[in-house]
Amino acid sequence: MAKDEQTASSQNDPVTRGGKRRTVPLTMARGPFEYTPGNQENNVQLTSVADMLQWAQNWARSRSVWPLGYGLACCAIEMMAAAQSHYDLSRFGSEVFRSSPRQADLMIVAGTVSVKMGPRLRLLWEQMPEPKWVLSMGQCANSGGEFYDSYYTVQGVDTIVPVDVYVPGCPPRPEQLIEGLLKLREKILKKGLKIQGESEMDR
């Protein structure tokens, strides 16, 4: 059915009516409905025993990413909603919100970071043991968002801590947060390994 639609639209499309249009295969998932966890992770190339060990370590790390229970603003409510029964974050091994940074792997920066909060956020990040990751949730944490001209907000949390995954939205839906977590999982799994069809520069 999708094919029929495609041909129908290409006939009507003034650009492709000539029939000379290069189609680029869309490899990225267009949304959570197309995203099957694990599919993107299969193309890791393992060529040596060291690689296999690395893969095993990465696999173990990626399957239970424990976030730090650190809510800042509105996004924290969506983070809470993602952890509850309706969205059930525990399907992806991340439901254990640790209150202590010493036990956490992932910092979800959920909300606006003010100038007063910035140093505390940095301190919390420094207290987390390696390996650690940061997920920036919502536009305020990504880039300042709607408080772009405020005198008291940090314009993007990546000015304070290194960010691995950005989740857009104001606030992002819980599905978006889960999608971000799956992306992070993929990133963790591929760390230090050769990827099919990716050059050294891409890593």
Binding site: S114, K116, M117, F147, S150, Y151, Y152, T153
Partner: peptide, 14 residues
Amino acid sequence: IGYLHRGMEKIFEN
């Protein structure tokens, strides 16, 4: 308090 101060009342003016 003040860890989430975002200058909202000033923003309203603009």
